[in-house]
Design a protein around this nucleic acid. Structure first.
Length: 801
RNA sequence: GCGGGUGUGGCGGAACUGGCAGACGCACGAGAUUUAGGUUCUCGCGCCGCAAGGUGUGCAGGUUCGAUUCCUGUCACCCGCACCA
């Protein structure tokens, strides 16, 4: 037998799969289908990260198993290739971003192929391909036509370094998520997408899908539905100030109000306000602050009282002061709150700073010390007609009162905000809209799609915050599709989220020139059966793509309400030091090196064996050797191969148990224990000293999804057939059970002995055997047996006193 | 501050629905094979103890015949966040 030359074997089979299109998706739509999805990578300049193979191998294992089980499997791959790092690299190195992208994609593709992942490369997609983003633009146009895309003047996050507007979601830790630059606020006219119109459906339809609970919780928290009330306060100017509150029950305890520094009423009241100078200074300070500064945790409460205008508490007619403070945001609720310091922590802190009255209206806490916010146990007090009620009952009663008296109404509110969709960058999908002075914003006719990026020298951002496209007269100037008069093109591009919001649909029919995908293909393949990706994408990407998919459902493109049936997530792979891998820490592992030194099969196996799939795990250069050693031992089985077409008696139950274990563990993402079971089986085989052909075939098949190259080679050399065309092994539940079982004997819960019994032994005889054990006799000696517990096939516990 | 999560040997981790804690690996120790190194093979390996035995799943309690698992409290660490009224 030759030695295990992993490099030669892996290249041989990768070539074979390529030439035979072994993983090309079948078009036999009568077969059961399985659509396995992994997040397509952003092809960065650093090449593939050692973390990439973890989710890819995991879903590759599931896909390979499904094929062996007879499914028609769609397991595609593509490139989410628009984005700032490429553009920034292009600017820095004076290479066109399209060329940078092409180079990066080639490198990534080569690296992925070297891992033996069973992607159908005939279905590769690339978000920067005009044939792809034609449909991204098309979807945007449909949204525009349905009124879901609109322009809005708003204060946005302005990255001073990228010179680009960021969505709130993209600002991390007060700095730009992508470049780390300082983020300030700036007013711009932005394209927005009305995701809020889908908030309730995005929430409700979570009931229809099988996501990990923590992912559902994340989605729910992000959507943030709350039921409260809008309450109208009249002011001493005679007009109305409306607040949103989830605690209308505490209305009697409202001792002041706070409005956001941007609240429009301030302008309205300008001539009545006595301290306008002070107010303006505070407003300007708030405006300068980035969102992070404004929302910084634990900071001291600041604010300014509006002198000259006071509000009237509708429930008791008391006049109360109004403040502005930056802890109240214009973007949530009505931009104004009623402050109930006794029962809200932030209001409590604010009241302490400004020495405002704190009135207890819910009994149960100690408001001398802190705000009492518990809704479950409190009883109303100092609240007129609400006194004595529970918080829940008080909420109902006060809402009735508000509606009866025309002072407010029940109101559902969402935290979710509309999606800022414009970017002032070059490397993104152009927004297919023109602006005409006569007709306003007009959709580009669909036959003009794709609207491609002009091939230009300069794709540098402009300092004034406009897109690089804005400097190109030839691009901007056009005619209005509506009236034929002169018009100007939109120069903003779409965010990177756009292309990734529907890519799974394109995989179903990637070369379609007439539609984003045919109805027939979508009806067959959708929804995605299993989508695995990182936890970092379980809020935004998941929400955005669910939103787009729901929209496409509404306009009849897809027939499914939800795009993903099942969503799981994987943990990051950390450096050897337990820290996130980064160049600066010098703990980066290059997958190419690992493939060279150990082979792709060992890398795949190790990434699956490294630990709990859902948790982070540190890379260990020595642990990977154990996986290589395992494959060496698997390879060496060829030396002890004997004839035989069924499992031998001494290994029969082990084989059935291992098939069961591996089959179930793959479905539960427990790859580490599946591999452990196969290791244990190999140990057992070596203890016996030989393996027969039936056993050999099963072992190769079980291991094939994990280590496809070595198993193909071994199977092929012994049987002459192609392993990936065989069937997944079956197990017999009855044969997974042992005839003799070891049971544990305890006295008062302490282990005293172990017994080998036959599986059908009855309780009395087992207990009798247990009591006959020397150690048990000693432990029970001089005591009386109170109780005998027998757990079939597990243990006997003698309770003695 | 809010939301989510995690704490088990020297290390990664395992343990079904409350039933032998530490599977499977790594590292380490002893031995065999080898000219040597590497490879491979055998045995050992939570901690204390010569042993018998005791003890042990972040910490303190509780429920139970029995708790890594359930409950209460507490500490530490990680991730996310839009002070969301």
């Amino acid at each position: 037998m030759s030695r295990y030359d992993y490099t030669a074997i892996e290249q041989k089979w990768q070539k074979y799969w390529d030439e035979h299109h072994s993983f090309r998706v079948g078009t036999d739509y009568s077969k059961p289908k399985f659509f396995a999805l992994v997040e397509f990578p952003y092809p960065s300049g650093q090449g593939l990260h050692i973390g990439h193979p973890r989710p890819y191998t995991a879903m590759d294992i599931v896909s390979r198993k499904r094929r062996l089980e007879g499914y028609n499997v769609l397991f595609p791959m593509g490139w989410d290739a628009f984005g700032l790092p490429t553009e920034n690299f292009a600017i820095k190195n004076k290479i066109h971003p399209a060329i940078v992208t092409k180079n990066n994609v080639e490198r990534f593709k080569g690296q992925l192929k070297s891992l033996g992942l069973s992607f159908d490369w005939d279905r590769e997609v690339n978000t920067t391909d005009p044939e792809y983003f034609k449909w991204t633009q098309w979807i945007f146009l449909q949204m525009f036509k349905k009124g879901l895309a609109y322009k809005k003047e708003m204060a946005v996050n302005w990255c001073t370094s990228c010179k680009v507007v960021l969505a709130n979601e993209e600002v991390v830790g007060g700095v730009c998520e992508r470049c780390g630059g300082e983020v300030v606020r700036k007013v711009k006219s932005q394209w927005m997408l009305k995701i809020t119109e889908y908030a309730q459906r995005l929430l409700d339809d979570l009931d229809q899908v099988n996501y990990l609970d923590k992912i559902k919780v994340t989605q729910k928290n992000w959507i943030g539905r709350s039921t409260g009330a809008e309450v109208d306060f009249t002011t001493t100017t005679g007009d109305t100030l409306t607040v949103y509150t989830t605690r209308p029950d505490t209305l009697f305890g409202a001792t002041y109000m706070v409005i956001s520094p941007e609240h429009p009423n301030i302008e309205k009241w300008a001539d009545k306000l006595e301290n306008m100078e002070e107010i303006k200074v505070y407003q300007e300070a708030a405006a300068r602050k980035s969102d992070f500064d404004r929302t910084e945790m634990n900071k001291d409460k600041t604010g300014v009282e509006l002198k000259g205008v006071r509000a009237i508490n509708p429930v008791n007619g008391r006049e109360i002061p109004i403040f502005i403070s930056d802890y109240v945001l214009m973007s949530y609720g009505t931009g104004a709150i009623m402050a109930v310091p006794a029962h809200d922590t932030r209001d409590y802190e604010f009241a302490k700073v400004f020495n405002l009255p704190i009135i207890e209206v819910v009994k149960g806490g100690d408001i001398e010390k802190e705000a009492f916010t518990d809704c479950a146990t409190g009883i109303m007090t100092n609240s007129g007609f609400l006194d004595g009620l529970s918080v829940e009952d008080a909420k109902v009663k006060i809402k009735e009162w508000l509606e009866e008296n025309g002072k407010g109404k029940t109101k559902v509110n969402f935290k979710l905000r509309d999606w800022v969709f414009s970017r002032q960058r070059y490397w993104g999908e152009p927004i297919p809209i023109v602006h005409c002075d006569k007709c306003g914003y007009v959709a580009l006719p669909e036959e003009e799609l794709p609207l491609t990026l002009p091939d230009v020298e300069s794709y540098m951002p402009t300092d004034n915050g406009e897109s690089p496209l804005s400097t190109l007269e030839s691009f901007i100037n056009t005619t209005c599709p509506c009236c034929g008069g002169p018009a100007k093109r939109e120069t903003d591009t779409m965010p990177q989220w756009a292309g990734s919001s529907w890519y799974f649909l394109r995989y179903c029919d990637p070369h379609n020139k007439e539609q984003l995908a045919s109805k027939e293909a979508l009806d067959y393949w959708m929804p995605v059966d299993w989508y695995n990706g990182g936890m970092e994408h379980t809020t935004l990407h998941l929400l955005y793509s669910r939103f787009w998919h729901k929209f496409l459902y509404d306009i009849g493109v897809t027939s499914q309400v939800e795009p993903y049936m099942k969503r799981t997530s994987h943990g990051m792979i950390l450096g050897e030091d337990g820290q996130k891998m980064s160049k600066s820490r010098g703990n980066v592992i290059n997958p190419d090196d690992v493939v060279r030194d150990y082979g792709a099969d060992t890398l795949r196996l190790y990434e699956m064996f490294i630990g709990d799939f859902e948790k982070t795990a540190p890379w260990s250069p020595s642990s990977i050797k154990g996986c290589k050693r395992f494959l060496d031992r698997v390879w060496a089985l060829q030396e002890v191969l004997v004839d035989g077409d069924e499992y031998r008696e001494e290994l029969k139950s082990s084989f059935h148990k291992t098939i069961k274990k591996v089959s179930e563990d793959i479905e539960g993402l427990k790859f580490n224990t599946a591999i452990a079971a196969m290791m244990a089986l190999i140990n057992e085989i070596y203890a016996i000293g030989s393996i027969n052909k039936a056993e050999f075939g099963t072992l190769c098949t079980l291991l094939n999804p994990f280590a496809p190259h070595i198993t193909e080679e071994m199977y092929n050399s012994v049987f002459g057939d192609i392993l990936s065309e065989q069937a997944w092994p079956k197990y017999d539940e009855a044969l997974c059970k042992d005839n003799t079982i070891e049971i544990v004997v305890q006295v008062n819960g302490k282990l005293k002995a172990k017994l080998m019994i036959s599986a059908d032994a009855d309780k009395d005889s087992v207990i009798a055997m247990a009591l006959a054990e020397e150690k048990v006799k000693e432990a029970v000696d001089g005591k009386s047996v109170i109780k005998q517990i027998y757990v079939p096939n597990k243990l006997v516990n003698i309770v003695a006193k």
